[in-house]
Structure formats: C-alpha cells, structure tokens
Simulated scan of single mutants.
Amino acid sequence: MAIFDDEPKKKARPHEIGQDLSLLSVGELTERIGILRDEITRLENELKAKDSTKSAAEALFRRE
C-alpha cells in the first residue's frame, strides 16, 4: 500500500492558451486540437442560440 494513495489527484488542464507546446508529443498536440475543435463547436452553437434569441426579441419589439 502506497503512502500517497489517499491524496487527491490534481486535474491537469487540457490546454492553456499561450502554453509552451515544444514539450508536447504529436499525440498530445493532436488530442489538444480535438479538444479545441470541440470547444469551438460548442461556442459556435451557443453563439447561434443567442443570436436566435436576440433576433426573436428584436422582432417582437419592432412590432408597430
């Protein structure tokens, strides 16, 4: 039984903007690209949802 088994493990950040990439392997870089692409898709979907809500609100208040 190891002494340090009960210590909580720190969750590594998958990517930090501006981080030094020179020490990462090709696999790690590929994984991070996938993570960032997924995040971009998530952000774009949220932007579309907010734009739809904004357009609906503008249409409602433009009624004359």
Rank of each mutant, 00 (worst) to 15 (best):
E31G: 05
I3G: 11
A2Q: 10
R32Y: 09
L43R: 01
I3T: 12
P8H: 00
V26W: 09
E28I: 06
L47H: 08
D51I: 08
L43Q: 01
E44N: 02
K48Q: 09
E39K: 14
L36G: 02
Q19T: 04
K10Q: 03
N45K: 12
K11W: 06
E28Y: 07
A59H: 05
S55W: 05
A2W: 05
A57F: 05
V26A: 08
A57C: 09
D5Q: 04
D20S: 02
L60E: 12
Q19A: 01
H15C: 06
T30P: 11
R13W: 04
P8E: 03
L24T: 01
E64Y: 09
E31R: 05
N45D: 13
R13G: 00
G34A: 13
I35C: 13
K11T: 01
K54R: 12
D20M: 05
K10D: 05
K50H: 07
M1D: 14
A49I: 00
P14I: 15
I3R: 11
V26P: 04
F61Y: 11
L47Q: 07
L60K: 10
S25H: 09
E28D: 03
L21C: 14
I40S: 02
R32S: 04
L60I: 10
G27T: 03
I33C: 08
S52T: 01
E31A: 09
E7K: 01
A12H: 07
S25K: 09
G27H: 02
D20T: 03
E16A: 12
R37A: 09
E39H: 14
K11F: 00
Q19M: 08
G34V: 11
L47V: 07
E16Y: 11
L24M: 08
R42L: 09
R42E: 09
L36E: 01
D5S: 03
R32I: 05
